[in-house]
């Protein structure tokens, strides 16, 4: 297990370096002098000089890359022009909002998709299966940002049930404990805060989770159909295990590997989706931060946000790779 972890880790490190290289090259491919990208428009000559030295812009390009890399490795992503703070601080102050939204979206998608997929897969070619199939198709085809707008139109507009934007903290002015509003409310034993946080989360999380729910439902269905034909399922039935246990224990356990693979892939789409969903719902996470920093031409913040997003995705896939051996002992040999 330790060897497997180390080997996966060794495979990830060059990928991370190449990601930084690609982002670095993008800055240099941009039309015009990179210095104009990396400076606010009203930069003083001293500031220009500082950036020139910091990025080593008078040196050969590979020296520049290693300068940039050594700064990134120490967690120094430069200063945001717009906020006047280090890029890392700006991003970390908004990261919990994005993480909370993504986690709730994933939970909603899983709660809807797995039972639906299991149900459809256990009764292939019945009305239940066709209804599930329609849900799956609509789920993968739905533009999540349109669903978000439709939810606002219906639930905030017509029915006036839920707030359409922001992420209220229930008038609580104490410093956040974890930064996750729901969790903070639980830790403070403040039911009102939990409820309030969930109200703000409901619509963006549902919109963000819909594509994942569709994909997850389809994969759960097809892998449960495959699994239910296996010999060990027949054995479980033969020894008299009730059908419910056969499906939900023996069946689901063995269907989990393709499901996990799709969760990993779909989390990338979920992270991308958070950019657009956060923009619609004015959710104060790093997705809306990315778009506002592009509009403000705050390029150090743009690069920093994209780098952080990509690293999160790399870490998620690394963790998922580590989970495989627990689900399927055969992986350990491979």
């Amino acid at each position: 297990m330790i060897l497997y972890t180390l080997r996966r880790l060794l495979a990830v490190i060059p990928v991370v370096f190449l990601i930084t290289l690609i982002l670095f090259l993008l800055i240099h491919l941009a039309p015009g002098d990179p210095i104009t990208l990396l400076m606010p428009e009203d930069a003083t000559p001293e500031m220009i000089e500082e950036v020139r030295i910091r990025w080593g812009l008078d040196q050969p390009i590979w020296v520049q890359y290693f300068n940039y890399l050594s700064l990134v490795v120490t967690g120094d992503l430069g200063m945001s022009f717009k906020y006047g703070d280090p890029v890392v601080d700006v991003i970390f102050s908004r990261l919990p909002a994005t993480a909370e939204l993504a986690i709730i979206a994933m939970i909603i998608a899983t709660i809807i998709a797995i039972p639906l997929g299991m149900w459809a897969g256990a009764h292939p070619n019945t009305a239940v299966d066709y209804a599930g199939g329609l849900f799956g198709f609509l789920g993968i085809s739905m533009p999540s940002f349109w669903l978000g707008i439709m939810l606002i139109l219906l639930l905030s507009g017509t029915l006036n049930l839920l707030p359409s934007s922001g992420r209220d903290n229930f008038g609580i002015t104490d410093a956040p404990i974890t930064g996750f509003n729901v969790l903070d409310g639980v830790l403070r034993l403040n039911g009102g805060q939990v409820l309030d946080a969930l109200k703000y989360l409901a619509m963006p999380a549902l919109a963000l989770g819909v594509n994942m729910a569709g994909m997850l439902m389809r994969v759960t269905r097809s892998s449960i159909i495959d699994v239910m034909h296996e010999d060990y399922i027949r054995t479980a039935r033969a020894k008299g295990a009730p059908e419910r246990r056969v499906l939900w224990f023996h069946g689901l356990k063995n269907a989990l590997i393709p499901i996990l693979t799709i969760v990993g892939l779909e989390l990338g789409a979920l992270l991308s989706g958070s950019v657009i969903i956060e923009t619609i719902f004015a959710w104060p996470g790093i997705g809306s931060l990315l778009i506002s920093s592009i509009n403000a031409r705050d390029y150090p913040l743009v690069i920093g946000t994209i780098l952080v997003y990509t690293l999160i995705f790399v870490v998620i896939n690394f963790v998922i790779d580590l989970l495989y051996p627990f689900l399927d002992p055969r992986v350990r040999l491979g």
Binding site: V15, I19, L23, L26, G268, A269, L271, S272, G273, V275, I276, L290, I294, V302, I303, I306, Y309, T310, F313, V314, N317
Partner: peptide
């Protein structure tokens, strides 16, 4: 494949 799909396009 390590870049989240839409984010790479946004960066470019």
């Amino acid at each position: 494949w390590a870049f989240p799909p839409l984010l790479f396009a946004i960066a470019v």
